[in-house]
Amino acid sequence: MLVFTLFVIVPLGINIAYSTTGGTDLFLPARSYVGGDNFGRLLSCADHLTPATCRDDLFWVAVWNTVRFVLLQVVVLVIVAMATALILNSKIRARGFWRAVFFFPVLLSPVVVGLIWKWIFQRQGLLNYVLFQFGADPVNWLNDRAWAFFASVGVSVWAHVGFYALILLAGLQAIPRDIYEAAELDRTSPARVFRRITLPLLWPNLLVVIVLALIRAVQVFDEVYVLTGGGPGTSTMYLTQYIYETGFASVLRNPGVASAASLLMGGVLVVLTLVQLGLTRWRDRK
């Protein structure tokens, strides 16, 4: 209980204390009260869609990067996970083996994931070699703003898809077999079986998976940080990296602003989590 209070409850209070005080000092009593200044600095913008017009332009760069990342990553992730789950649920041999294959990257550390792919994305790396074999020109994957973004999405999908595929697979296996057998006797086409039987019965699980993926995508950091370091420029710098660098890594560290940013992110996450808890309840009731 002590440990809980120490590392979970107290921090929340301190977080608020930091976010309302200024200066570079980490020692709380030495910090001066500035009220909502930190939030003001983060939120004041002439035009929120153009980060350059904001007082803290990096924050908004990170915000919009994260929004783009979350949208693309979650869509790709859920589609790939769904397809994988459907295929793993069909009548295939050695299902346990295939399940293990897709789950394997989930266990890898983000650093390992980042390094493996950084190596493959090298200028003279495996990917360019494959392109070369097909006669295409090599691409400077991680030094190109657009490619680096897609690479960060692709790598994080690669790393996490197995986890969601497994949750969805469990959901699929909970659908009674005899429903499918009845559909087969009715000569239902596979596409129709999916649309009219699988999807409606899986929908509660799918929703939970989507929200869970959203929650995790918003916090994206480690594998991308190792892969690109946020670059080139700031094109793959996401919110958690902004918080980390503002609070700890940069020379002019500013714990107050980092705290304020993390509270803003925390707010979004709490809303998402409440949605998830609600959905889980709703699913379990059904």
Partner: peptide, 24 residues
């Protein structure tokens, strides 16, 4: 209430608590 707190803390990820955790 303890259970409630535990469920609540499930909701707050590390990335949100970096600064205060660091200071603790």
């Amino acid at each position: 209430s303890v259970m409630l707190i535990i469920v609540a803390t499930l909701m707050i990820p590390l990335s949100v608590n970096l600064v205060p955790l660091y200071s603790v």
